[in-house]
Amino acid sequence: MNVFRFAGDMTHLISILVLLLKIYTTKSCSGISLKTQELYAVVFVTRYLDLVTDFISVYNTVMKVVFISSSLAIVWCIRRHKVVRRSYDKELDTFRHWLLVGACAVLALVVHEKFSFQEVCWAFSIYLEAVAILPQLVLLQRSGNVDNLTGQYVFFLGAYRAFYILNWIYRYYSEQHFTRWISCVSGIVQTALYADFFYYYFISWKNNSKLQLPA
């Protein structure tokens, strides 16, 4: 564990807390893509299958349980909560996310480190995580205005990916640890998807104005 990875894990955790805070305090999920949340739930469930086969550390186990349960809780809230679900922007959230699932499943079957159930699921979850933010970014772009908490949610998610890249660079030099290239390539693609969002986020922060994305 190094400072970059810890910062990455913490910004990831903060992003989820910000999202839960928004849903809890405003009783609204407007601006939040259910499709992205469903993809994250699939990502965590397929990646953390090792919860039942390998023990790494208490920290690792707790974080995995938190990620799986919070992502399922968020999906439940948007779909089933009697107040929250009314604010869901269904007509803006039309990304065909199951196509991403299909494409990532095919890619994982073709490109993986080892042909075992767990390893193919792991590769699938890495590929899917890289593109899971797309429905959310499309929704934000369509709605134009982004409320503060939603903006911060996406910002922290992007920050998490950026810290993970720094973590891999650090591990390479300090531990001679080679991060798997599947993770590296997917991680770079994932972080790049946030570049545009980051640009507008910093402009709005610098001007102290509301975050607006160009149509």
Binding site: R5, I56, M63, E119, T179
Partner: peptide
């Protein structure tokens, strides 16, 4: 061998 297969990152 087993060490290499463990995914220690989240």
């Amino acid at each position: 061998e087993k060490e290499d297969e463990i995914h220690d990152e989240l």
